[in-house]
């Protein structure tokens, strides 16, 4: 299928982009790398009046180092992380996740900001950045604001972005040298959207032990007190984690089991525990 007709503007800088976003009536969509929006346009699932192409805007293709965080422009690509052009907040945490997103040809154009703004619960960045405690920076003609990932992603494919607003950067806190990151993505084949994601950040120096169950058809379930749910010898407290997943909407027992596995395995990685031996016969 071919996309329905739309108009396109290519602003030269951020202020022109914000002006274009704010000025137009009708359905306006932001086009960054186009790797999530492109298929939906081609399938005519989305029929915007106007696309605002931000992929070339220099302000969105830069990285700033702050004392305790790295600030990535929205148009930094997955391949930028994969190849190390974008610095990592810890030992290859971002690179490891980025290199597992879709396929190389997609990673060469797909962006971290675009992925977050699309807010597909099964997307890698949504879960990863929740685990890393990241924030997004949002700009509009009337100013800027910051939101945590949890506040930004309001539902499946839904964000707190208001008309005229643009996600301009992602701020990811640096972790200590002792920090460990666990990431388990369950999919039926390489490059597929995840059916379950487990992500966990354990940073003893900063007192962080955060775990995330993602790809649950809703915003990821963030567990801030992962220490209470995981023990290095006995592994995940499946009953409690299962209760939280159920409360988070994962009602189907089979789904819940798979999510618990992903979560438990990610936590085992992050706690550097031997993965709990898979259960033997019933």
């Amino acid at each position: 299928m071919k996309a329905a007709r739309f108009d396109l503007v290519r602003p030269r800088d951020l202020s022109e982009a914000l002006a274009a976003l704010g000025a137009t009536a009708g359905l306006v969509k932001v086009l960054a790398g186009g790797q999530s929006l492109g298929p939906m346009l081609n399938l005519r699932l989305v029929e915007p009046d106007l696309l605002v192409d931000i992929a070339g805007i220099p302000e969105l293709r830069r990285i700033d180092r702050e004392a305790d965080a790295l600030v990535f422009g929205a148009c930094v690509t997955h391949a930028d992380f994969e190849d190390g052009r974008a610095p990592d907040v810890g030992r290859d945490m971002l690179a490891r996740v980025a290199s597992g997103i879709a396929y190389r040809a997609v990673r060469n154009r797909g962006t971290i900001g675009g992925s977050l703004a699309h807010a597909d619960p099964a997307a890698d960045w949504v879960s990863t950045l929740s685990a890393l405690g990241a924030e997004v920076e949002i700009a509009s003609r009337s100013g800027r604001r910051r939101l945590t990932i949890g506040a930004f992603i309001t539902g499946a494919l839904a964000t707190a972005l208001q008309p005229g607003e643009l996600l301009v950067a992602v701020r990811i806190p640096l972790v200590s040298a002792a920090a460990r990151f666990g990431y388990v993505k369950h999919a039926r084949k390489i490059g597929e959207f995840a059916h379950a994601i487990g992500a966990a950040l354990v940073d003893p120096e900063r007192g962080t032990a955060r775990a995330v169950a993602g790809a649950i058809d809703a915003p990821p379930l963030v567990i801030e007190d992962a220490l209470a749910l995981f023990d290095r010898s006995s592994g995940l407290d499946r009953e409690e984690a299962g209760r939280r997943l159920a409360a988070g909407g994962v009602e189907d027992a089979v789904d819940r089991h798979i999510h618990l596995e992903a979560l438990g395995r990610a936590l085992a990685q992050a706690f550097d525990a031997t993965p709990p031996a898979l259960r033997s016969a019933a």
């Binding site: 790398g33 186009g34 992929a55 220099p58 930028d80 962006t111």
Partner: peptide
């Protein structure tokens, strides 16, 4: 940095 093919 940024998407290949995209220029300002």
């Amino acid at each position: 940095l940024g998407p290949v093919g995209a220029r300002c």
